[in-house]
Design a protein around this nucleic acid. Structure first.
Lengths: 147, 147
DNA sequence: TGCAGATAGTAAGCCCCCTTATTATATGCC
DNA sequence: GGCATATAATAAGGGGGCTTACTATCTGCA
């Protein structure tokens, strides 16, 4: 029972990720690229470390994503006048119009996902997810300290 | 609210995957390699297409994983006498002993994850996950037909 | 029988993710 | 002021995921 629940959680999120990737593909974006653009709109004018932290990926991983987005004109790196090591990321005119569509895709996706689940169930589900997030964070913390 | 729940689901599963990857790493295995070994024990004597289907990855992806597992002596490819195109995958003496430990890691992982969630909550959670799986499968089905 | 279409496995090439290591710059403390 | 430490970004290199395309083989049907 526990095993099944664990596998089901992992499977669901893989499907969720795939569906998102498929739906943003028609915009010429990969999933991670779209996630960065969304993050860039929600929290503008930050450096690369900030967004790597937000997306929970390593800075080097973000660097490569930004490389491709910059090549394609979706994103611009500008020097931070206050810190010569840092680069501030900016949306471009090209990408600014797309982000609205991305938000629509995200909302539709989550709506599709939760269809047929009523408010009470959704609340219980969200609560369980919260607890799981806490448990997983604690487990990783323990790992880091002991291992 | 919906958005938060969607993001939380995606985040949780990323954490779950990471924790699994970290815990099998001390055995000298990557996450996908460990998942294949577990699948290989549960359903022995099948060909590569079968396991690709089980792990929900493309055959070419499985090919590369098997390449590395075979190089490291964790897995053996044998010709299928009934179909000259196919290769049957086998555990080796080296890997057979490890799979028990892998099962223990999976059980502990899911236990850690669900800690503090009582039986009724777990059942409701599992039920919601079922519904979500159905919804996501339906959405991907629609996608495939229309797009 | 014989050919068309399906299937098993793999190659090439792209993107994402990581660990480890390097360079340039900031910061903190003596 | 000067040095140790921390931080921002990137490079190198490996594993894993994909799409597209190819070969070998099997299967089904005329």
């Amino acid at each position: 029972m526990i095993i099944e629940t664990g596998y089901r959680l992992a499977d669901n999120s893989r499907q969720l990720r795939r569906l998102f990737d498929e739906r943003v593909r028609c915009l010429g974006l990969t999933g991670p690229q779209a996630r960065l653009l969304l993050s860039l709109e929600r929290n503008p004018n930050e450096n690369q470390v900030f967004y790597a932290d937000r997306l929970e990926i390593e800075p080097i991983t973000l660097t490569r994503i930004v490389d491709r987005l910059e090549d394609a004109g979706w994103v611009e790196r500008r020097s931070d006048p206050a810190d010569r090591r840092a680069r501030i990321l900016h949306l471009t005119d090209k990408s600014r119009g797309i982000v609205t569509r991305l938000r629509g895709i995200v909302e539709a996706l989550f709506e599709d996902m939760l269809q047929g689940i009523d408010a009470a169930e959704r609340a219980a589900f969200a609560h369980a997810l919260d607890r799981i997030a806490t448990n997983l964070a604690a487990a990783r913390q323990t790992e880091t300290i002991n291992g």
